[in-house]
């Protein structure tokens, strides 16, 4: 079965306090040199049947209407090989 991955990230202009909290914790844990952290979501979809253009179009529609809220989030769709 083919896997399609949808990554959802807050838009760059949206404040991400969770990412900031992670970034601020890093030096305390001895991880230096990380200037910024943004936290997002990853969806792994196991697709029945072929992952053709039509299937990808449906997945993009799904991402746009449901997995992401495009008021605040961007998404990318890719086939995981």
């Amino acid at each position: 079965m083919a896997r399609v991955v949808v990554d959802v990230m807050l838009k760059p202009e949206i404040l991400d306090p969770q990412g900031q909290a992670v970034q601020r914790a890093l030096p305390r844990l001895g991880f230096e040199g990380i200037a910024d952290v943004r936290q997002g979501k990853r969806f792994e979809l196991e697709v029945e049947g072929p992952v053709d253009d039509a299937a990808l179009a449906r997945i993009r529609e799904m991402a746009e209407t449901f997995l992401a809220n495009t008021v605040i989030e961007d998404f990318t769709v890719r086939v995981d090989s």
Binding site: L10, I14, L15, P17, Q18, A21, N69, V71, I72
Partner: peptide
């Protein structure tokens, strides 16, 4: 209501978490 787009904008985690 914001998710349905009956009202504009969105709600996110409080800035202080």
């Amino acid at each position: 209501l914001t998710e349905t787009h009956l009202l504009p904008g969105a709600m996110l985690r409080n800035n202080h978490l």
